[in-house]
Design a protein around this nucleic acid. Sequence first.
DNA 1: TTAATATATTATTATATCATAATATAAAGA
DNA 2: TCTTTATATTATGATATAATAATATATTAA
Lengths: 104, 104
Amino acid sequence: MKSQVQGQALSDLRQKSEGVASLLKHLSHPPRLLILCALAEGELSVGDLEQACGASQSSVSQFLKAMKMEGLVEARRDGKQVYYKIADQRVVKLMKSLYQIFCR
Amino acid sequence: MKSQVQGQALSDLRQKSEGVASLLKHLSHPPRLLILCALAEGELSVGDLEQACGASQSSVSQFLKAMKMEGLVEARRDGKQVYYKIADQRVVKLMKSLYQIFCR
DNA sequence: TTAATATATTATTATATCATAATATAAAGA
DNA sequence: TCTTTATATTATGATATAATAATATATTAA
């Protein structure tokens, strides 16, 4: 029985390397990883995310903009606040995997 | 029953965000992702990896050096060739997860 | 010892990303 | 309308990363 990561299986990942690498780039920076950690628990406002990741308002807003452009998150305004949540379920799965691999 | 990615569980990942983000940075660039894809199948020479990822000899060597410094891969010389393999089993697990999430 | 091959190193330039400051917009309340 | 609060945008300089070229090292074989 073949491993998941072998033969044809892996070449699938190869074909998708541009997109997957692009997505992973958002996770490859501590404040952005923390933002997605926090969002994996549910919807949060920009201010909440500033607290969660320790970056400045401007930085958080810029990170969220980039993630939104990539389709990772989506935004909803409620009064003065804007709430973000994860829009790509693959990101949720990935966060769970990261937890399993690095926090067990 | 709690999700894996909630409460205390997530704060574990938060504590480790520097290290995890640093590891993910190596995966966040297509040629490096392809190198680790290829190595997930087993040990390969630098020349093999040049083929697998399409980057230049110098680039591949530099990428491998960085990955080795981070403990992701290890090297063994056999004659003129140097063979690399994945040294950190978390990387193998991560490649399997990436396959499951992005290639299913 | 010389030549050929595989890999590593160094230097350099180009590009991308990060962090910050300053300013702008949008909503709510006085 | 004016102020306050929350978020977004823009511009900038600093730093990091990427890609390339040139050179160095190590191994093998002639």
